[in-house]
Amino acid sequence: MYKIENLTKTYKQGRRTVRALDNVSVDIPSGQMVAIQGPTGGGKSTFLQMLGALDRPTEGFISIGDQVITELPDRKLSGIRSEKIGFVFQTFNLIPTLNALENVETALEGQGLSREVRRERSLEALASVGLADRADHRPSELSGGQQQRVAIARAIVKNPEVLLADEPTGNLDEEMRDEIMDVLEGLWRSKKLTLVIVTHDSGVAKRAQRRLNIKSGKVAEAA
C-alpha cells in the first residue's frame, strides 16, 4: 500500500532547524494494522500527516499503490484525501454547528453524489458505529466516545483504502478507549482497510499487527 523511501522533513523553528523525520524508509502493505509509538515530539504526527498527504516532505517520496503522492499538485492531493484516505483525530474535530449526520456527510462532498445517496451512505456509516439514533444530535450533545464514533463514521463513509488515526483514544477513558478500538478493529477487518494508528497507549498498540517506533525522526520496528 504505502512505500516510503528516504523521507526527511525539516522545520524552521526560529533560527533552529528541527528534523522531524530523518531519512525514513518503510513499507506498509495493504490491509495491515500498524501502530506507531514513540515519545512526544518524536515525529509520529508528522509521519502520519505525510501518509495522509497533508504535508510534503523535504526529501524522499511516498507512494500509495503506484502513485507517488509527494509529486502531486495540491488539487490532486485533495482528490486523494477525498477518495482514498480517512482521518480520525484525537480531538474528534467535528464541526460544532452541524449535527452528526451532516458531519459525516462532509466527507462525501465533491464526490458528485446526490443528496439522497449522501444521506443514505452517511446513515449507514453512523449505523456501523452504532449511532444511527443520534444522527440529528450536535457534537455538544454527544459524549466523547460518541463524538469519536461520529468522526470514525466520517472517516469510513467514503470507503477509503487507508484509515489514519492520530491518538484516537487519547481523550477517552479506558472503557471508552476499548469501545473505540473495538469499532476501529471491526471496521479494519470488515472493510479490509489499511489502518495506521498513532498512539501512546500500549494497550492500543498491542492490538495492532505491527508496531513502529519513531524517535528523533527515525523509524524502527518495535519488538
Partner: peptide, 16 residues
Amino acid sequence: TREFGTLKAIGWSNGR
C-alpha cells in the same frame, strides 16, 4: 482554523 484544516484533511479542495 481547525475546522478548515479538518475539512482539507477529509478532502475538501481550496476552492470548495
